[in-house]
């Protein structure tokens, strides 16, 4: 697990992170637009520290990190915890960061759809869940379009810009994926009778 493999969307590709990506990671973590929108992965740091972090991430048994690119350009990262021993096998999205200079181009939706296809159509997970800052309209739209719905709401959770913002806990079940995307989103063309 640990470092994710290639997952292709229509416009974006999730791929294995490399050391060459780390300078961009660091600059995103230092960007106030990113920090306002949601949780960052790690605090900004020197290159050597980032290299250590990437090594540690590679050893992580359950957390998986991908870089997101479009047309060969790095534009983001996503990190998910994949687990479920006592609970239904699930992916918990921990970080989903798109370079702010690439916002409002549809890359977030494309990468999110591809990632969920990997979760449900490849890993056969039963649910996805995550938390969003309640005022992150773009993330909320993507989540709703995928099929997430709110199951809990924390009040005055995150402090920034001089005040608190609520946190929305959202969940998506496998049945919703099957209903909305099961027929159109496949990792592979099914063999069908040829098996």
């Amino acid at each position: 697990m640990a470092l994710g493999g290639v997952v292709r969307g229509k416009r974006t590709t999730l791929r294995t992170p490399t050391e060459d990506d780390l300078a961009a990671y660091s600059s995103w973590m230092a960007d106030m637009r990113v920090r306002r929108a949601g949780p960052i992965w790690r605090e900004p740091a020197m290159p050597a520290t980032w290299k250590e972090r990437l090594k540690d991430q590679a050893k992580d048994q359950r957390g998986v990190l991908w870089s997101i690119e479009t047309d060969g350009r790095l534009i983001g990262l996503v990190r998910a915890y994949i687990g479920g021993i006592e609970s239904p096998p699930a992916a918990r999205l921990q970080n989903f960061i798109i370079d702010p200079d690439e916002w409002r181009k549809g890359y977030g939706w494309d990468a999110a759809l591809a990632l969920h296809r990997y979760f449900f159509d490849y890993l056969d997970l039963k649910r996805g869940f995550t938390e969003l800052r309640a005022d992150n309209v773009a993330a909320r739209r993507i989540a709703e379009k995928l099929g997430y719905s709110e199951f809990g709401r924390g009040h005055q959770v995150h402090y920034r810009d001089g005040s608190y913002v609520d946190e929305s806990w959202i969940l998506m079940e496998r049945a919703t994926w099957d209903e909305r995307f099961g027929k159109t989103e496949r990792e592979y063309v099914p063999f069908g009778a040829a098996r």
């Binding site: 006592e86 199951f151 809990g152 709401r153 009040h155 806990w169």
Partner: peptide
């Protein structure tokens, strides 16, 4: 209580 997370534990 601020929410309920469904089907979290199997016993």
């Amino acid at each position: 209580q601020i929410g309920t997370y469904p089907r979290s534990w199997f016993r």
